[in-house]
């Protein structure tokens, strides 16, 4: 017999060692998330996936499911807090969606729509984060980095390269690349790297592909973030 836990009042089956988020997504139940990706080890930093487990908050991407636990996710309180976190991510960086190549394909933007975000609410920090256009095939626009570390994990765990890393502390946290010059061109980064294709927002961008797919026919023009996550789980990569 498989074990189950309760998510917003209905049973979700899980296997030993699965997290709440993994089991929920497998069962077609969406919980907002940004730093989780099914192919990588959980990180637990964005906190968008926070749920209440038996009355206490926990990140559902890192908390292991246990039999009979009561999990609340779609509550007004949690969604309001998720919305605030999303707004924090927007004001922390420089996100000018209309001029962003990733617009329509961006998970931050799609999550903002999903949560009903209509404004940034907080004062913008307007950080100064120069671009890195040194690489022949890729552009790094750090203005949009949400520090999810997916590129770090992909490069380290799948590409065996460590092209990306997190540096600094607190609000000075930022992404760095593995070269003495600090430029991407001096690393061994390549188009075929997994890390070239995991960024949920518009930081790691392929050059000369700008607006290849017109706005209006992009991922999240056609489906919601929930549907996107469902299909991603069904995909064989």
């Amino acid at each position: 017999m498989t074990e189950t836990f309760r998510l917003d009042g209905t049973d979700v089956p899980f296997e030993a060692g699965e997290t709440i988020l993994q089991a929920a997504l497998k069962a077609g139940r969406f919980i907002p998330h940004l730093c989780h990706h099914p192919e990588f080890r959980p990180h637990g930093s964005c906190k968008l996936c926070t749920v209440k487990v038996d009355g206490r908050q926990a990140a559902s991407c890192t908390r292991l499911a246990t039999s009979g636990m009561k999990v609340e996710s779609e509550t007004e309180e949690l969604n309001a807090e998720r919305l605030a976190l999303t707004q924090m991510l927007f004001v922390e960086g420089n996100h000018f969606c209309p001029s962003c190549e990733k617009s329509g394909d961006c998970q931050l933007q799609a999550t903002a729509y999903h949560l009903g975000m209509t404004n940034a609410h907080y004062d913008h920090f307007f950080p100064n984060r120069p671009l890195d256009a040194s690489h022949p095939d890729f552009l790094l626009d750090f203005n949009r980095c949400i520090l999810c570390s997916l590129c770090v994990r992909a490069s380290r765990d799948i590409d065996n390269k460590n092209v990306f890393g997190l540096a600094g502390r607190g609000m000075a946290s930022h992404l760095i690349v593995n070269s003495k010059s600090g430029k991407l061109v001096d690393t061994d980064f390549s188009v075929s790297d997994k890390a070239a294709h995991v960024c949920p927002v518009g930081v790691i961008l392929r050059k000369r592909q700008g607006f290849f797919i017109p706005i209006g026919s992009r991922t999240f023009d056609k489906k919601t973030i929930k549907e996107y996550v469902d299909t991603r789980l069904g995909e064989e990569d």
Binding site: K47, L147, R169
Partner: peptide, 21 residues
Amino acid sequence: FAHESCGFCTPCRVGTALLRN
């Protein structure tokens, strides 16, 4: 707190800076 936040999680990294401001 804003100076010492490790910066790992969104609420603390951005939230302490917002509170400081």
